[in-house]
Amino acid sequence: MKQTNQNRAPWILLPCVLLTLGGVTLLAPHPAAQAAPTQVAPAQTAAKPAAYDDGDGDELLEHWDSPRYGAEERIQIGGAAAGFLLLGVVVWGKRSRRTAAYAGLTLVDVSDPVKTEFLKSEQSVAEERKAA
């Protein structure tokens, strides 16, 4: 059991590390976005300037041109990634502790003669039944 849990540890940590790296990459200024801020989406039917003004005032609300929106997204991605990393470490630590606790576990408190006798008698019933 101990070995199985330890073998699984990389599978818990690996996605956490990847998510964090992904978050950090997104946090860094995007060179493509800086170089070509008006790069259009592939699904765009008619390429027009980003600040196209059709007179209805909506262009003031368009968030993809605001650096503030992008920055806030990156902060939240970074926060989530850090949270995942922390959770991964906590889960790994917990599993390792549990594995260590159960590895050499004595299920019956042998210092308690009454309980030991009780459990022993139950086990002997099972053994007798198996033998039968």
């Binding site: 309980k115 009780f118 139950e122 086990q123 019933v125 099972a126 039944r129």
Partner: peptide, 9 residues
């Protein structure tokens, strides 16, 4: 509650 249920039965 302390209880042990043997296998089988």
């Amino acid at each position: 509650l302390t209880l042990a249920v043997p296998t089988g039965g």
